Simulated scan of single mutants.
Amino acid sequence: MTKSMHISLKAGEKLFLNGAVFQADRKVTLELLNDATFLLESHVMQPEDTTTPLRQLYFVAQSLLVDPANADAARRLFFRHLAALMTTFSNPAILLNLDAVGRLVSEGRAFEALKALRGMFPQEEVVLACTQPHRAA
Score class of each variant (00 low, 15 high):
Leu128Glu: 11
Thr52Arg: 07
Phe89Thr: 05
Ala20Asp: 14
Ala69Asp: 13
Ser8Pro: 01
Asn97Asp: 01
Val44Thr: 07
Lys10Ser: 14
Ala110Pro: 06
Leu33Ser: 12
Asn91Met: 01
Val21Asp: 10
Cys130Leu: 15
Leu30Trp: 14
Gly119Thr: 04
Ile94Cys: 01
Ser4Leu: 00
Glu124Tyr: 07
Ala100Gln: 01
Ala61His: 07
Leu9Ala: 04
Lys27Pro: 15
Gln46Cys: 03
Gln132Gly: 01
Gln62Thr: 09
Leu17Thr: 02
Ala11Thr: 08
Ala129Thr: 11
Val60Leu: 15
Asp99Tyr: 00
Gly19Arg: 08
Asp25Leu: 15
Met86Val: 10
Glu48Gly: 10
Leu128Asn: 12
Val28Glu: 15
Gly12Val: 06
Phe121Lys: 02
Ile7Asp: 03
Phe59Asn: 11
Tyr58Leu: 12
Arg76Leu: 08
Ala116Val: 02
Arg55Asn: 05
Gln62Asp: 09
Leu128Lys: 08
Leu128Gly: 09
Val101Ala: 07
Phe89Gln: 03
Asp72Asn: 07
Ala113Met: 02
Ala129Ile: 04
Ser8Trp: 01
Leu54Ala: 08
Arg103Asn: 03
Ala24Trp: 12
Val101Asp: 00
Asn91His: 08
Phe79Ile: 10
Gln62Met: 12
Arg80Cys: 07
Pro122Ser: 03
Tyr58Gln: 14
Ser4Asn: 04
Asn34Leu: 13
Ala84Arg: 13
Glu112Asp: 09
Gln46Arg: 14
Gln46Thr: 14
Val44Gly: 05
Glu125Met: 09
Leu30Gln: 13
Pro68Gln: 06
Arg118Trp: 06
Pro53Asn: 00
Ala100Met: 00
Glu13Tyr: 07
Asn18Gly: 14
Val21Tyr: 05
Thr51Val: 13
Pro47Thr: 03
Gly12Leu: 05
Arg109Leu: 09
Met5Gly: 00
Leu39Gly: 03
Arg80Thr: 13
Phe78Ala: 06
Asp67Gly: 02
Ala136Phe: 13
Met5Leu: 12
Leu15Gln: 05
Ser106Ile: 00
Thr50Asp: 14
Met45Leu: 14
Leu39Thr: 07
Ser90Asn: 12
Glu112Tyr: 03
Phe16Lys: 08
Phe16Met: 10
Pro133Trp: 12
Glu13Gln: 15
Phe89Asn: 04
